[in-house]
Every structure is written in structure tokens, then in C-alpha cells.
């Protein structure tokens, strides 16, 4: 097999035999269930614990459920899945390790902060396109409780969140990628590089990630020789209100305008007016659940013909933050097309 002509520009791949996104599932927490996308999720938890004892176990449960639902929708058993690509926000990716343990699918554990869904989808589709397997599973998750514990304060601690702060989405999205026909194809990917403008404010992740989103989007447009209008929507993961306005400025600075067809999952998943989430949603689960519940159905129906899905990640750790390091950003772009 010769993949030479698949390589596009500096950072992109355009698949010769584009893999299909066969099925997907979204499991979400209570607050997400009360949000604008509430009715579109496949499963909404009653109390954010999903029958488990701890936030961490709850996150693992969501991942497992999301995987099983996605497989069930496609009538595929887990033994038919060649590899699984999964990740979350917790240290050492423990939510994924425990979550997918029972599925017994050979797996790659990933970390790309909130951009992990893009990383997982890119790797899954690359593996399918390369012929390394018929079916690949991509799954990511985040949980408000476990993320607050990991990155910020105990949940009952008396702090006031700044307006630029994000609300970590409690949710998990799973995607089955393969060679079997469906109505959505992953026709290309653009893998992002780390972009760091030196910002140190972990409570303003939108501003930390916007430069990375801009870089990847521009890279994608140039690698594929496309204009922003060639996409029905350019969907970023979780830039939020602050990040979006910065992204617009940055992109205009590079000579493009994406204002008309931009959408952000973090701004879509919560209602800013009534849910008091400040800048918007974030976390590995944010982009994944929104993609599965809201974006993919639109592409399946042909409402949107071509969408650029760009989950963004703020790659910080509590240690690097305490040591005064800046927060590097990353973003990966996935080209989704109706077929």
C-alpha cells in the first residue's frame, strides 16, 4: 500500500479510503442533562455518581457505558474491535484504564487534555485507513467532581469562580470508526502542535487554548487548500466565550474570517444565562458528548455536509502550575463529511 499521496501539507492527512464513523454514544451528568442538549444524550445520570462510590469510579462507569452503547448501536461486539484509543483528564489516565478494563479490547491510553477526543479519533481513523483493523473505538471522558479535585479545590470549598473559568463537563463520548458504510466519513485529519503564548492563568483556559486552535485551523485550511466557507461549521472543543472572541481576532490576524460558521462545544452544551457556568463547558467529555449528541446527527442527516471538528486542550498539570510554568495549548482537527 502506498500512502504517499495521502500526506497533505505540513501536518495533515487526506485519506484515500476514508474511514466511516459508524456509530457513537454520549453519556452525560445531571447538569449537562438539564442543559440545551439534555434530550439528545443517550444516557443522563441521575446524580453524577452513576451508581459508583467516587467521582473517579463514576467517570469510569460513564466510559464503559458510552463504549457499550456505541457498540450496541452498530451491533458490533467488543471482540470485533481491533484497538481502542481512550483518554481522560485524571492522573495517569486512570479513568480510562479502569473504565475500559472489562471490555478487553487492546488499547492505547492517550492524554491531550480536552483535545483527547480529537487525538483518539485521528489515531482510530488513521489505523482504519491504514488497514490495521476493521473497527476501532475512540472514547474520552471527564467528570466535574474528579477534575475539580485533580486541578482545583475540594467541591465544598468556599471559592468564587472567575468569569473566565470553565465548568468541566461530566460526560463521556465513544465513537466507533471502521470500514463499514455509514453516513459520516472522516476524510482527513490535521494534527496540531503545541502552541504556547506564555499565559499562566489556568482559570482562563480559553485564552490559553485559542492560539493552538487558530494554528490548527489555519494549518488545516492551508494544507487542504480550503476556505472557511468550505466547511458548514468549524467546531472548536471548549474555548468558551473568552476563547472564542480571542480566536476570532487571531484568525482575522492571519487573513481568514470564521465568525459566520464557527461553533464551540463548550458554549453549546450549557446555557450561560441559566446554568451559571461562566465561560462555558470544558473537559474531554465536552467536545466528545457534543459531537456525538449534536453534531454527528446533523451530518448524518446531511444538514451539514462538511464539518471541521477541532477539540482544544490546555496541557497543564498542578505541579507545572505551582512551579509557575505557562499553560501550553494543543488542538487537533478532524474533517467530517456527510456521505
Amino acid at each position: 500500500m502506498n500512502h504517499q499521496n495521502c500526506i497533505k501539507g505540513a501536518q495533515s492527512i487526506e485519506f484515500e479510503e476514508a474511514p466511516y464513523l459508524i456509530s457513537s454514544a454520549a453519556v452525560a451528568g445531571k447538569k449537562e442533562g438539564e442543559g440545551p442538549l439534555g434530550k439528545m444524550f443517550d444516557m443522563v445520570g441521575e446524580d453524577d455518581l452513576f451508581g459508583a462510590d467516587t467521582w473517579e469510579e463514576a467517570e469510569s462507569t460513564m466510559q464503559k457505558e458510552a463504549c457499550l452503547l456505541a457498540l450496541g448501536k452498530a451491533h458490533i461486539s467488543q471482540t470485533q474491535v481491533r484497538y481502542l484509543f481512550g483518554g481522560d483528564l485524571l492522573r495517569q489516565g486512570i479513568a480510562t484504564s479502569i473504565g475500559v478494563e472489562e471490555l478487553e479490547i487492546p488499547m492505547f491510553g492517550l492524554y491531550g487534555a480536552c483535545s483527547t477526543s480529537g487525538e483518539a479519533l485521528a489515531l482510530a481513523s488513521m489505523n482504519v485507513a491504514a488497514g490495521y483493523g476493521e473497527y476501532m473505538l475512540a472514547v474520552t471522558s471527564s467528570h466535574f467532581g474528579s477534575a475539580e479535585k485533580e486541578f482545583r479545590f475540594p467541591l465544598s470549598y468556599a471559592n468564587q469562580r472567575p468569569l473566565s473559568a470553565h465548568w468541566t463537563v461530566t460526560g463521556s463520548g465513544a465513537f466507533l470508526v471502521g470500514t463499514r458504510r455509514s453516513h459520516v466519513r472522516i476524510t482527513g485529519v490535521t494534527i496540531g502542535k503545541i502552541v504556547d503564548y506564555g499565559l499562566k492563568d489556568s482559570q482562563n483556559m480559553g485564552a490559553c487554548m485559542a492560539p493552538a486552535a487558530c494554528d490548527t485551523i489555519i494549518r488545516n485550511l492551508e494544507d487542504f487548500g480550503r476556505a472557511p466557507e468550505d466547511y458548514n461549521r468549524i467546531v472548536t472543543g471548549d474555548l468558551g466565550y473568552v476563547g472564542q472572541s480571542i480566536l476570532f481576532d487571531l484568525v482575522i490576524g492571519k487573513g481568514y474570517d470564521i465568525k459566520k460558521n464557527h461553533m464551540d462545544c463548550g458554549m453549546t452544551i450549557f446555557d450561560q444565562e441559566t446554568q451559571d457556568t461562566h465561560a462555558g463547558g470544558s473537559g474531554c467529555g465536552c467536545a466528545a458528548t457534543t459531537l456525538s449528541a449534536y453534531i454527528l446527527p446533523k451530518i448524518e442527516r446531511g444538514e451539514w455536509k462538511r464539518v471541521l471538528f477541532v477539540p482544544t486542550g490546555a496541557l497543564m498539570s498542578t505541579v507545572s502550575f505551582n512551579e509557575g510554568a505557562s499553560v501550553p495549548g494543543i488542538a487537533h482537527a478532524i474533517v467530517l463529511e456527510h456521505c
Binding site: 472567575p162 468569569l163 492563568d201 485564552a207 492560539p211 480571542i246 481576532d249
Partner: peptide
């Protein structure tokens, strides 16, 4: 030069980021 750029971005972000109404919060 990089430091200057970072400073410029930080200032720009500061300007773009909404903050709580201070008198009200006080």
C-alpha cells in the same frame, strides 16, 4: 522578543476577559 510578545498577549487577554463587577462584589 518572545517575552515582549507574551506580555502583549497577556495584556490583550486581560482586556478581552470579563471580570466580576467589583463594587457589587465588595
Amino acid at each position: 522578543d518572545k517575552q515582549k510578545q507574551q506580555q502583549a498577549y497577556e495584556n490583550y487577554v486581560k482586556q478581552k476577559t470579563p471580570v466580576h463587577n467589583l463594587p457589587l462584589n465588595m
